[in-house]
Write a protein that binds this DNA or RNA. Structure first.
Lengths: 120, 120
DNA sequence: AACATAAATGCAGATGCATGCATATTTATA
DNA sequence: TATAAATATGCATGCATCTGCATTTATGTT
């Protein structure tokens, strides 16, 4: 007879441990948070190299308000990685674009992420 | 060629989705949070049916301060599930014990948790 | 005009870090 | 040996951060 709670706990702990390791190393070695890395990652694979805040939110899995603030923090902290411009066809929306230095940061961070995640 | 970031993201999203579902259902149907369930779970499998705050913290994976506050909230919200008594041999420490009604709550919650986790 | 949508913001909850406080344990020394 | 000083440990608390929910504001759509 197996213990489902215990199995669940084991998986949860493993995931949490991995997550913390990844986040710590990324901050130490690349000076960006995991969410910030995700932003760069999704912006870069997007067709236009820019996304609506709304769409980024769905990919990253944050609430709308958390996403809005996350981008604000990211701009304040490292203003050169992304850039914000308003959407001409719908003036309610904004676009977040990845810059050249954002792209370079993504590439260096991705090496770190890959090297860590490979071992999970 | 595989994309490690994308694989990691997929796993992360799956885990997050599961976690949110479990927590939501547990609150709805049993009126306790997942962390509160874990507290009851670990207290019940402990030999003495009580644990030091310190040891609970290690099992549950919260910081010491978060654990301290979590137990406080739990006492205030549902004072009958657990009880706190001071440790006679070391007056710095406290013991958290599970009560009879805590045990009953654990059993009913465990049914819910198991039924959900089984599907993950 | 009424309703829908994108983003910003006020607010409250949960967390971690740093620190404080009380108590235990170890070490130094009279 | 006795005891004073230094250090370690268990928990609580102040504070800052990040989050989600509810609401607001500006703009679009019907």
């Amino acid at each position: 007879m197996s213990n489902l709670t215990q199995e669940w706990l084991n998986r949860t702990r493993e995931q949490k441990k991995n997550l913390e390791l990844l986040e710590t190393r990324l901050i130490e070695e690349s000076n960006i948070t995991l969410n910030e890395y995700y932003v760069l990652y999704f912006l870069n694979i997007s067709e236009e190299k820019e996304m609506r805040l709304n769409d980024l939110q769905l990919e990253i899995g944050l609430s709308q308000s958390a996403m809005s603030r996350m981008i604000s923090r990211m701009e304040n902290k490292n203003c050169s990685l992304i850039e914000r411009h308003c959407c001409m066809t719908d003036r309610r929306g904004i676009y977040i674009g990845i810059t050249k230095s954002g792209y370079l940061k993504l590439k260096s961070s991705q090496k770190i992420v890959d090297s860590i995640v490979r071992k999970f």
